[in-house]
Amino acid sequence: MTKIEMNVNGRAASGEVEGRTLLSSFLRDELRLTGTHVGCDTSQCGACVVHVNGEAVKSCTMLAVEAAGSEVTTVEGMANADGSLSVIQQAFQDHHGLQCGFCTPGMVMSAAALLKENPKPSEAEVRDYLEGNICRCTGYHNIVKAIMAASGQDVAPVAAE
């Protein structure tokens, strides 16, 4: 076992891990931050996306010891300081960007990473960026719409067509 320390959502966190402990397991099982979901465990689905030192990574495909000393942000760290939803989270709610909600943590984290490097993406750029995030409910349209809205761009209101 190795003792590791990292900063998670602005707070110091530490724990004892095995070499094989994944970052996703450390976050969920050790720190009890179960907002990070593990969908496929084969690095396809993106439900486990978190930010490590500001970059989106699949936490099921990174060893916890490799994240030692890093700044990690999970979906639990996305809300505003007063507990209200962040712009991205609020947009997902407003535009019905989720149904079952399983992929949502990864979608929110990927959206945040995208908007940080590309504050006004086109719809095509949003869809391209979400290549590694799979959703089996929404058909992606409202997720894309939510991210476009979160970027401050006009989107048509959700219509029940």
Binding site: E55, A56, V57, K58, M62, S110, G132
Partner: peptide
């Protein structure tokens, strides 16, 4: 290559 999160690792 891969997707954005994969490209970051």
């Amino acid at each position: 290559i891969g997707d954005p999160a994969v490209r970051n690792r």
